[in-house]
Design a binder for these strands. Structure first.
Length: 189
DNA sequence: AAGTCATACAACCGCCGGAAT
DNA sequence: TATTCCGGCGGTTGTATGACT
């Protein structure tokens, strides 16, 4: 199939207020139907991916900007610890039966923080929280490699991962707010 | 005041999975 | 069944801004 979008002369970099207005106006009028095709009639020389990212992360209604609260940071750290793997699956009960839905780490965390986007959480994690955890680990008492080997059982007892088959309702899956296994199911707790 | 460095944030790239054909 | 496209994600990069010397 031929590429449906002309990739030449696509604009990159920061979005201007005019571009934002164009995208918002187009989506208000026609809705989201195909990111790759929408940019051109919207008057934007942007890739579909760029438009989608801009909308999802900044222009979409309800997006919260600004500093993360302590509670939000704790939520991120807690969930990041639980969702160590890239993704997991949940079973969703729909009228047509059970279907499996894949949820990804950052989007799961974002679903727990209304108004926050996965990209914003990811950036905040890399910029702040990962470093903070790193420093916390560095503040642990000194142990030699031999001591670490002696007391660790990583080979036979790897860190726990999420048990994927949490049974959730369709309505809760839509917001993903109740789609995580409870913390009590995590052996680390 | 100017230059340098560190930090924060916006955006891009590459990849993958699902849907459509 | 195979192929192609689109949406979405994680990781990474680029740039603006502030702090420091």
């Amino acid at each position: 199939m031929a590429k449906s979008v002309e990739n030449r002369a696509l604009k990159k970099g920061a979005w201007s207020p005019e571009e934002d207005k164009k995208l918002i106006a187009y989506i208000k009028r026609y809705g989201i139907w195909n990111w790759a095709e929408m940019a051109k009639p919207a008057g934007l020389q942007r890739s579909g991916k760029s438009c989608r990212l801009r909308w999802v992360n900044y222009l979409r209604p309800g997006i919260k900007h600004g500093n993360f609260t302590k509670e939000e940071e704790e939520t991120i750290i807690d969930l990041h610890e639980k969702l160590g793997n890239r993704s997991f699956h949940v079973q969703v009960v729909s009228s047509s039966g059970q279907i499996m839905v894949e949820l990804n780490r950052w989007s799961v965390i974002a679903s727990k923080l209304p108004g926050r986007t996965d990209n914003e959480i990811k950036n905040h994690w890399h910029a702040h929280l990962s470093k903070r955890l790193k420093y916390d680990l560095n503040s642990l008492p000194d142990m030699s490699d031999a001591e670490i080997d002696q007391y660790s059982s990583f080979e036979t007892n790897p860190p726990p991962t999420i048990v994927p088959n949490a049974l959730i309702s369709e309505s809760s899956a839509a917001t993903s707010t109740n789609s995580l296994p409870s913390s009590s199911s995590n052996p680390k707790q």
